[in-house]
């Protein structure tokens, strides 16, 4: 029997500013795939802080669906891409696919919102796992 499972995460936009600080080094590339990085820019080519924060929140929200306690978030394996009409879609690869399969996760839906210096994301799916 399938059961619903949700994940939620909140990321302050200030954290994105920290990650973009040149003194920190090229860390953001560890979080975002090339396709995500390209989609995380404003029309004038600047980093879209709200978009990046929303993407990071969505990745972590999806990771929470896996129930993988004690594992690092496979940031690159959980891609949040722009779907039809601008709705976010999830693409899994590598260890993220294995984690999703291990708990019998069905299709994943995510929703992202930004306000007041924060981005929040909720991910939902059904699982065939008992817990």
């Amino acid at each position: 029997m399938s059961r619903p499972r949700i994940g939620v995460d909140l990321v302050p936009l200030s954290r994105v500013s920290e990650l973009l600080d040149p003194e920190v080094g090229p860390v953001l590339g560890r979080f975002l795939s090339a396709e995500e990085s390209a989609a995380s820019r404003t029309p004038d080519g600047a980093p879209d802080h709200a978009g990046i924060a929303g993407r990071l929140a969505a990745k972590e929200a999806v990771f929470k669906l896996f129930g993988a306690v004690g594992r690092p978030v496979p940031w690159q394996g959980i891609e949040i891409l722009r779907g039809p009409g601008g709705r976010p879609v999830v693409r899994l690869s590598g260890s993220a696919t294995e984690l999703a399969t291990s708990v019998g996760l069905g299709p994943i839906d995510v929703s992202i919102s930004h306000d007041g210096g924060f981005a929040i994301a909720v991910a939902a799916a059904t699982t065939s796992a008992d817990h």
Binding site: L19, V73, Q76
Partner: peptide
Amino acid sequence: DSLAFVELVYTIEDAAGIEIDFDAI
């Protein structure tokens, strides 16, 4: 936290002069 974990890995790499395979952590 989970975001800082990636920075921690980067800091260790920088301090140790090594590369850490994130998928094999």
